[in-house]
Design a protein around this nucleic acid. Structure first.
Lengths: 134, 134
DNA sequence: AACTAATCCCAGTAATTTAGTAGGAATTGT
DNA sequence: ACAATTCCTACTAAATTACTGGGATTAGTT
């Protein structure tokens, strides 16, 4: 039950963008790649997921880049992770229906655990993270 | 961030054994395989992990089988999952040390999340699960 | 208009992990 | 002796994850 690299890198990027938010600066993928040590091409895909989730917006062309759509105070870690980690759900059977070898008694457990995780992650904002205040 | 099949099956097995605990019955792997729909060979490995963690004990030879080492009241779901899911930890860097591409600010987050998950899972016993009372 | 710096889009591949299979040795009751 | 069982270890197949690559599109600059 590991977080994917997308989740780790995505959060990393989000924190970098949080730092730039006050000064209203955009960050290019190549700058983010340098900051995080992840390749540009891979980060591109991760940032794209965040954009789809409306966590970041972009400016195309020269002098373009990415920025958070809202204050780091208002963006939770949970939201970021749900955007980039396509599999945040603990088990499949909750979403896809319980087809096989699944002890249905356990379903409630997984559902509650999922709830638990998300509600925790939603108590922490990017601001908290950026300030190392969690 | 999915639970592995070992985690799901392991918990399933634990609940089956919980049902037999009062009557002090053992369950063979083949019976467990029938109950759960998982192959014997795979279950064998899963049960072995539970044995190593002292959650179940075994009787070898004819009329042998497995049983819980303690009352279902005293065995938590968290303990079972930690035994069978070798990767319950959310990220590697906590255990193995943070070597690369890891935003160290996030480390605290992962650690707290892990704590959070485990403390939740440790509030639920096999008895709760078996009684569908979670 | 040409050039350059950037996002955007999609397809492929390599690496790793998970899930499952297989064979047989050791133990114990009948 | 035999049958039913746990135990041990190695291998393989399937799936997922992590990454690479090519190129189209957009916008500022000269």
């Amino acid at each position: 039950m590991k977080m994917s690299s997308k989740a780790r890198y995505g959060l990393y990027v989000a924190v970098e963008l949080a730092k730039k938010f006050e000064r209203a600066e955009v960050a290019t993928v190549s700058a983010l790649a340098q900051a995080t040590g992840v390749t540009e091409k891979y980060l591109e895909q991760i940032v794209a997921l965040m954009k789809k989730a409306d966590i970041v917006s972009s400016l195309r062309g020269a002098n373009g880049g990415y920025m958070l759509t809202d204050s780091p105070n208002n963006i939770t870690v949970g939201r970021v992770l749900r955007a980039v980690e396509d599999n945040l759900e603990i088990v499949d059977c909750i979403r896809k229906g319980c087809k096989n070898k699944c002890n249905c008694v356990s379903r409630n457990l997984w559902a509650k655990l999922y709830e638990n995780i998300n509600s925790y992650l939603d108590t922490i904002s990017l601001k908290h993270l950026a300030d190392d205040n969690i």
